[in-house]
Each structure stands twice: as structure tokens, then as C-alpha cells.
């Protein structure tokens, strides 16, 4: 671990001979980074090892290994259902958020109109405020409307943080497209529909993919919002796992860990795809500065 994390500090040495000696702060920084990464990976790996273990006492590694927990987990009533629910909710939410959010992001990026700042503020708030500030009220409202516990309510509730995220990610990508391109298309006779489908959507594809995958990752891990509104048959994977973990008489640790490995596989897939297309540091931190 230490060798890989130390590598970047030695990189500038080749370019600038004056900076060759690693400073105390550099060593300290990378040691802390290495420790953090080690703890984080240990936490994640321990779940995988638990899922593979027959029994594990107070030793470094379990006494035996087995794959049977995965079959047990798959046969556990509710797990297959919650995987299905997770996918249904994720796909529905990402689709709705993109359909609604990308056009909205386009208008916000291109136009100055009264109320634009208010819209930006209210798009920012659900992203900034942690879900628990509004999860309970939203759940109460869903039950009041008579759709509490249904799949519809789970989809609606999870839309709240996703849609603003899509808008916020779309804006800088639209700003990168020169308005000249649109005007050229109009000069050549494109109507609004063709402008949108033939010019804007192809140019915006990287932004749409980035927004889609980042919100997919967020829906998959979203716990609080789903937790308060979901019913027995509409739990997503994280909610099922939380239920198993918080119940003292619940399933054995290895069985829960096996469920979690299913979840990790799904989430990791989303993460790897998202890093292929987007740099989260850019999309999260400095949307306004990414102009041409």
C-alpha cells in the first residue's frame, strides 16, 4: 500500500530537480492517505471474507471457506425481490430524472429569466441537505396520499435528490456547447425537434451519461428515503440489509454479508461505468467554471 501511494510524490522529481526530496508534509500526507485507504479496504474486504467463511472466531482469518452462503442468501425470501425492486427503482428514477432534468438544465444554462436564481437554489437544496431532513415528512405525505409502501412511492421519493443532481450536472455541459452551433443548425433549416435530437443530444451525450450514472450510483445507495416509505415487498437491497443487520435475532452475519456482496457487485458495476465517463471531482465541485 505504502509504495503505491508514495509513487505520485516522486513523480514531479523527474521534471523539476529542485523538488526532488520528499518533504515531511508529503510523507505525512501519504501515510495518512495510506492508512485511510487501508482501513476502508479492510472494512470492505472483511464483508466479502465473512460471506465466504464457514465460521470466524477471534482470529485473523476464518477457519474455513464455503460458497454456500450465496445460495442461502439467494433463497432467502425477499432477497431476489429486493434486487428486482432495486433495479426497477433505479432504472425508473434515472430515466425520469434524465427526461425531466436534461431539458430543464438546458433552459437554465442558456436563458436568463426571472426566477432563474430561485430555481437554481431549490435545485441545490435537495442535493446539499441530507435526506433525513425531509425523508419523514415525505413519507408521511406519501401515506396521506394513500400510496405509502407502494413501488410508486419509492420511485417518487428517490427522485428528489436525483433530479436536481441531473440538472446541476447538465448545466456546465450545455455551457460548453457554443450557441453558434445551434444557430447554424437553425440556419440550415432544423426545427426545434430536429435541433434537439440531431444536434443537442449527440453533443450532450457525455453529460447525459455522466448525469445518468452518477444518479444511478446515488439511487442504489440511497437508504433513508426508501427506508421510511417502503413496505414489506418494496424494499430495496440496502433497506433489506439494514433490516437484517439491526435485528439482533436476525440472520447470521455470513448470510447478511452474502446479501451485501450481491449489492456490492451491482454498485461496483455502476461505479466503474461512471468513472469511465465522468470525473466526479469536476462534476461535483466546479460546474460553473467548465466553460470552453
Amino acid at each position: 500500500m505504502a509504495t503505491t501511494t508514495l509513487a505520485p510524490t516522486s513523480a514531479p522529481a523527474a521534471r523539476a530537480p529542485g523538488f526532488s526530496r520528499p518533504t515531511v508534509t508529503a510523507v505525512l500526507t501519504w501515510t495518512v492517505a495510506g492508512l485511510f485507504a487501508a482501513v476502508l479496504l479492510a472494512v470492505l474486504i472483511s464483508v466479502i471474507v465473512t460471506a465466504l467463511s464457514t465460521s470466524w472466531g477471534g482470529t485473523w482469518l476464518p477457519s474455513g471457506y464455503t460458497l454456500s452462503w450465496f445460495r442461502h442468501a439467494w433463497d432467502t425470501p425477499g432477497l431476489a425481490n429486493s434486487i428486482a425492486v432495486t433495479f426497477e427503482v433505479a432504472i425508473a428514477d434515472v430515466a425520469i430524472a434524465l427526461l425531466v432534468g436534461v431539458p430543464a438544465g438546458y433552459v437554465v444554462a442558456r436563458k436568463k429569466f426571472p426566477g432563474r436564481n430561485a430555481i437554481m437554489l431549490f435545485a441545490l437544496l435537495p442535493v446539499i441537505l441530507p435526506p433525513l431532513t425531509y425523508a419523514v415528512q415525505l413519507a408521511a405525505l406519501m401515506y396521506r396520499l394513500g400510496i405509502g409502501g407502494t413501488l410508486l412511492s419509492v420511485v417518487l421519493v428517490n427522485l428528489v435528490p436525483i433530479l436536481p443532481l441531473v440538472i446541476l450536472i447538465t448545466v456546465p455541459f450545455v455551457e460548453q456547447i457554443s450557441p453558434d452551433v445551434e444557430q447554424a443548425a437553425k440556419v440550415f433549416g432544423a426545427d426545434n425537434l430536429r435541433l434537439f435530437t440531431r444536434v443537442l443530444v449527440p453533443l450532450l451525450t457525455p453529460g447525459i451519461v455522466a448525469a445518468g450514472v452518477l444518479s444511478l450510483v446515488r439511487v442504489l445507495g440511497s437508504f433513508e428515503l426508501t427506508f421510511f416509505v417502503s413496505g414489506a415487498t418494496t424494499q430495496t437491497l440496502v433497506v433489506t440489509i439494514f433490516g437484517a443487520l439491526s435485528d439482533p435475532g436476525g440472520p447470521p452475519a455470513a448470510l447478511t454479508a452474502a446479501m451485501t456482496v450481491f449489492y456490492m457487485a451491482i454498485a461496483l458495476l455502476g461505479l466503474v461505468i461512471s468513472l469511465r465517463f465522468a470525473n466526479p471531482a469536476h462534476t461535483l465541485a466546479q460546474p460553473a467554471r467548465r466553460t470552453l
Binding site: V47, L245, G270
Partner: peptide
């Protein structure tokens, strides 16, 4: 990506 639940699940072993 994994969220706080997964972190909390792995912490006892560590």
C-alpha cells in the same frame, strides 16, 4: 457508492 450501511457492516470485523 456503497453507503454508510456497508461501512457499518464491515466495521465490527476491523
Amino acid at each position: 457508492t456503497f453507503g454508510s450501511i456497508l461501512i457499518a457492516q464491515g466495521m465490527p470485523r476491523v
